[in-house]
């Protein structure tokens, strides 16, 4: 049995679409109900929805053999897993944004609001810049608008929310998309099945 962890929400539905096109269907997966685990005995696979941030935990700890996680979450959690394939779903960027009238003062400690403290820390460490991280859970755009932070480090898809709040991107950190990940031990013993899933997903992801 291959256990698959998919992220709940929009990205998960896109990824499930890829699984479905690749021939891996799990009846009831997209129905509005509270079921979390779906099995397809004929395929020898079990699929479950988990919170996007938790997919790497389920895979790293072996509860799921494979899973799909956003690159942002992989960068932030840095799990010890294999990142086998770029599924190319949910493409966006991890960027630094600030108020349109923002002028950086390199002599000051930079105040950075983010949901991704590890990514922000690593990015600014690479630049040799001292920062003060303000970890928030959503509505990041408010932070520079109200003066809580100088910049934000956040996911930017279309940039509409930034524009509507008079913010703009000042630098990009990474290109993001969903990635197929695998538990290292599961890959040793279920490698044939996982490679086949990977091959079929590669054919339908573009």
């Amino acid at each position: 049995m291959i256990n698959v962890a998919l992220p709940k929400g929009r990205l998960g539905e896109k990824v499930y679409g890829l699984f479905s096109r690749a021939g891996y269907d799990f009846p009831g997966m997209l129905e509005k109900n509270r079921r979390l685990v779906f099995e397809n005995e004929a395929l020898g696979m079990r699929c479950f929805w988990v919170k996007p941030f938790d997919v790497p935990v389920f895979v790293e700890r072996g509860t799921a053999d494979i899973g799909a996680a956003g690159k942002d979450i992989l960068m932030e959690r840095a799990p010890d897993v294999y990142e086998l394939l770029d599924l190319k779903a949910g493409k966006c960027r991890m960027s630094v944004a600030a108020r349109n009238d923002y002028h950086d003062d390199p002599g000051r400690v930079l105040r950075v609001a983010t949901e991704f403290p590890r990514i922000a820390q690593e990015y600014y460490s690479g630049l040799g810049r001292e920062i003060d991280i303000i970890t928030l859970r959503g509505s990041l755009e408010l932070a520079p608008v109200l003066g809580l932070s100088d910049v934000i480090v956040d996911i930017v898809e279309t940039g509409t929310t930034l524009r509507e709040n008079n913010l703009s991107v000042i630098s990009d950190i990474a290109e993001l998309s969903a990635r197929l990940i695998a538990n290292k031990s599961a890959y040793k013993f279920k490698g044939k099945e996982i490679s086949e899933i990977m091959r079929r997903l590669q054919e339908v992801s573009c």
Partner: peptide, 9 residues
């Protein structure tokens, strides 16, 4: 080294 069923090396 890995053993089947144990999730890490």
């Amino acid at each position: 080294g890995f053993i089947e069923g144990i999730p890490e090396a």
